[in-house]
Design a binder for these strands. Sequence first.
DNA 1: CCATACTTGACTATTTTAGTCAGGTTTATA
DNA 2: TATAAACCTGACTAAAATAGTCAAGTATGG
Lengths: 141, 141
Amino acid sequence: MKLTSKGRYAVMALVDLARFNNINPVSLRDISLRQGISLDYLEQIFSKLRKNEIVQSVRGIQGGYILNKKAKEIKLTNIFDAVDEKVKTVQCKKDSKKGCNGKATKCLTHNLWDELENHINDFFKEKSLEDLVKDNAERRV
Amino acid sequence: MKLTSKGRYAVMALVDLARFNNINPVSLRDISLRQGISLDYLEQIFSKLRKNEIVQSVRGIQGGYILNKKAKEIKLTNIFDAVDEKVKTVQCKKDSKKGCNGKATKCLTHNLWDELENHINDFFKEKSLEDLVKDNAERRV
DNA sequence: CCATACTTGACTATTTTAGTCAGGTTTATA
DNA sequence: TATAAACCTGACTAAAATAGTCAAGTATGG
Ligand code: FES
Ligand code: FES
């Protein structure tokens, strides 16, 4: 099981953005340089974040992105949902009664993976962008 | 983030095996048929489980595999370690001081992913094969 | 009017996954 | 002692997912 770069970058970029927020829009170019993430890739990611109303864009010179909500209200879950970084532990279709491998009933481990998925999602539901910015500020001192 | 089939199959097969244990060795062919997993793929997986002393093999006719420890002592962690199903949330090398993207310090989110990794691993450390077999027996009633 | 920066969609190389395939070796039992 | 069941091993490969790149825009502040 591993975390993909898309999800990692999305959070990384938003933490960067959140730190400079309240002052000016932050341009993707700056984030790209500071965090070492490809600009083109960031654009893909922010397009999704904008559609999901995590950020707002400001066009033109001195433009960039700003948060669309308070950092406290943006949870990791919201970010991951926005960029389609899903936690997927089961093989079968969740709403179907069929198991994986095409059997008529759920497999021996289905329940276990379901528990695991919830366990992981709990973590994402708790953490907010604000928490991350704070954590980071403390470590810097 | 998603769980791979290798890890899922390993656990599925061992739960199957654990249920029939104490009587006779269980052949991979039977597991393959019951669980709908390719026999050749199972062999790869059990080769690793054997090398990691999770199971013992019994060769020849009427042979198969038996658990090498008590079901209670086999945790999910052990199984996943054996088949190289690793939880990997950070991009950087853990023992290095360098961050991902080649920076000299750890990135803004490194600590977060580290926490996440621990959170997931905690789940795997708790659950034993015995738990899984019991869960399953209960559900069947 | 033009440089900066957002916006979009298509394309592609690389890596990982999930197997298959081919050839063994061991051993109970008829 | 032949044979078939079952373990054992390594190499190979198709398909999917990932991690981007590339190209061609549009909007707007100064
Ligand atoms: S994972 Fe849901 S049935 Fe196997
Ligand atoms: S994940 Fe470790 S430094 Fe970025």
